[in-house]
Simulated assay, not measured.
Amino acid sequence: MPMGILCLLLIYAISTKNRTKSKKAVILAFIFLYIIGNSFLSNELFLWWEVPPTSINKVKQHDIGIVLTGGTINEDKLPIENIFLGGSADRMGQAIELYKKGKIKKILISGGGIEVLGQTQKLEIDEMAKYMIISGVAKEDIFLEKNAQNTRQNALNCSKILNKHFANQTYLLISSGFHLRRARGCFAKVGLKVDCFGADYISHERNFYWYNLVLPREGNLGLVQLLFREVIGYSTYKIMGWI
């Protein structure tokens, strides 16, 4: 991860007795920090990686919309009866809009809970279903897959449900723009033909304002770390033969 790389460079700079190598490590750390903190460059990275957005008006009608969980709901916030939206809630909002505009007829939500100290907290998938229902999605049009712990399992478990109950229908996969590459690959690997619809976009339209070109921002460090993690995840899945 970026912060780990920076720490290693600085630790090396402090620990080495060679003054020349120490200076080079500090300079390299500064250059790396500036690059990953630069708003223009970090945006370029996301524009390169994210699956481009699709105009909702150009989306053809699909029988099933598949929504992947992950950060859509803040599961740890109390009181428990409240639904607090997380940072990836846009994918849920996009699914609701697609449903209301008739682009998808039914919604399959996929994602399981993780036990913490032997206990499973309130499930994100259940909270998503509740939120969709109060937002106007008919309860009978929502289906849940509660066992998947990662994107590979999302694809495997959804394929079993879809092949059994909704075979030979059309599917629209809805997830974050930066995650769609891996998700699309996993679903294709298990033999499911899906169209994709991106949400939660981190990139924005390219601009050349001087402060974006020159000034680094601390918020970009977290964004680039997210991209690093996704690229590593994609590469790992590729090596494992899951995409």
Rank of each mutant, 00 (worst) to 15 (best):
Y99D: 09
M92L: 15
S235C: 12
I133E: 14
H179N: 05
E218W: 06
H62N: 11
Y234K: 13
N168C: 00
L162S: 01
A89C: 05
I73R: 09
R182C: 05
I142K: 13
R184E: 08
L47I: 15
K238H: 07
I243S: 15
D195R: 03
S203F: 04
I14F: 06
I66P: 08
R182D: 05
L172V: 00
N43E: 11
G113W: 01
G71M: 01
G222I: 06
R91G: 03
D90A: 09
L223T: 07
L45N: 10
A25P: 05
L8Q: 02
A129Y: 10
S42W: 15
E145Y: 10
F84D: 05
H165I: 11
F40G: 06
G113I: 08
I125S: 13
G93F: 12
H204T: 07
L123G: 12
Q119K: 14
T72A: 15
K139A: 15
K189G: 07
N147D: 13
I96L: 14
V26M: 12
L173D: 05
G222D: 13
K24D: 01
K164G: 12
N38W: 14
L78T: 05
L215E: 05
K21E: 07
L180R: 06
G65N: 07
Y237R: 14
D200K: 00
T170N: 01
G198T: 02
S235Q: 11
I80G: 04
K24F: 12
K24S: 09
K160W: 00
E145I: 04
N154C: 12
L215T: 01
Q94P: 03
R182Q: 07
I14V: 10
K21L: 11
A25F: 01
S55G: 11
G241S: 07
E115F: 07
F46E: 10
